[in-house]
């Protein structure tokens, strides 16, 4: 039991370590990789401002690169690798953003809050709607309602979040003008616990959340299938014979047990959410984590780019780890859990 938890955590840590290694390798080892490109960038800047390359300048360049990336060009690759890991794991030090001239980690954290804010808001709404509809469809299997919604859900799977976003933007933002189409907060409001500010952030997050809502909808059909399977189980019949109320059976028996097979998938949805954030934030001009990542890509801000890669992976990994560690609680059958691997 404890062994299982230790194993899962260790595995997650190994995956994180692999990601860091990949990120380091991309960063340092690729010919004309970011490290080289950065060096060129700075040299160009210097050349433009009329400085000449001598030993001193070279040292200054190296010092600057080191300041941005935590990379000391004089170190061997192995030393550099361990330094890189050490700085990230112990100090969460991902270096300094070139464009923002700020430490990467706090910058990412600040932006991440906003992504998680609108993301969980829309995703939670989407998932709960999907689950409720899935269950209702299962209870009315084969009915008109079931058929129509099945078609609807299949169609929904063919629409990526960003198309939903564009349509929402055009209809509610631009044509009807009901909701703001850019920025995170209403202009002129003071951040803090005051009503106008709170209303402002909710309004500004509304459209982008709705797009996330559409993206979170897909689980409904799987859930419907699980519910139908569950409804045919013997213990459901016994529960009816035991005189339990239909509500109790629907929630504690059908609803909950049907959740088990899609539980991990739901938590994995967070990964999809983060990936989608890049494009959604671009469409809605919403400055949060995805926006930060995209801009760092355009400006070749490598420390920020690599930091984002590690952060996104870290968040996904945490989601999966939580799924694994809590699965034993919601399904007592896998308490031993040795054979269970969700990732």
């Amino acid at each position: 039991m404890v062994n299982y938890y230790v194993k899962r955590v260790a595995h997650a840590f190994m995956v994180l370590l692999t990601t860091l290694t990949v990120s380091f390798a991309l960063f340092r080892m690729l010919p004309f990789g970011p490290y080289e490109i950065m060096k060129l960038q700075i040299q160009n800047q210097m050349a433009q401002s009329g400085e000449t390359m001598d030993v001193q300048t070279r040292e200054r360049i190296n010092a600057r690169i080191e300041a941005f990336t935590n990379i000391d060009p004089d170190q061997t690759m192995v030393e550099a690798y361990f330094d890189y890991l050490f700085n990230i794991i112990v100090y969460q030090d991902f270096g300094k953003s070139i464009t923002h001239n700020e430490a990467v980690w706090p910058l990412m954290l600040e932006r991440m809050q906003w992504t998680l804010f609108y993301g969980t808001y829309g995703f939670a709404l989407g998932v709960s709607t999907a689950l409720i509809l899935g269950a209702v469809m299962a209870y009315n299997e084969g009915s008109r309602f079931d058929q129509v919604l099945t078609y609807f859900t299949v169609t929904n799977e063919t629409i990526p979040g960003y198309i939903a976003a564009i349509i929402l933007l055009i209809v509610f933002g631009l044509q009807l003008g009901w909701l703001p189409t850019g920025a995170r907060e209403a202009p002129g409001t003071v951040p803090g616990l005051n009503i106008p500010y709170m209303i402002g952030i909710v309004q500004h997050a509304a459209l982008i959340s709705m797009a996330g809502f559409v993206a979170g909808f897909g689980g409904g059909l799987d859930y419907r299938g699980n519910c139908i399977r569950e409804l045919g189980k013997d213990y459901i019949r016994v529960a009816h014979l035991r005189g339990l109320s239909d509500t109790r059976i629907a929630i504690r028996y059908v609803g909950r047990n049907s959740l088990l097979p899609i539980y991990t998938g739901l938590l994995l949805g967070i990964a999809g959410l983060l990936g989608g954030s890049v494009i959604l934030e671009w469409i809605f001009n919403y400055p949060a984590m995805g926006d930060l990542l995209l801009k760092s890509l355009f400006s070749r801000d490598y420390p920020l780019l690599m930091g984002s890669l590690v952060l996104f992976t870290g968040v996904t990994l945490t989601g999966l780890l939580v799924a694994d560690l809590t699965y034993g609680i919601i399904d007592p059958r896998v308490q031993g859990g040795a054979e269970r691997e969700s990732f």
Binding site: K233, D234, Y235, V238, A239, R252, N257, L260, R333
Partner: peptide
């Protein structure tokens, strides 16, 4: 053998 809800004690 399957009369009990597997997720309940």
């Amino acid at each position: 053998q399957s009369a009990f809800n597997p997720t309940m004690s």
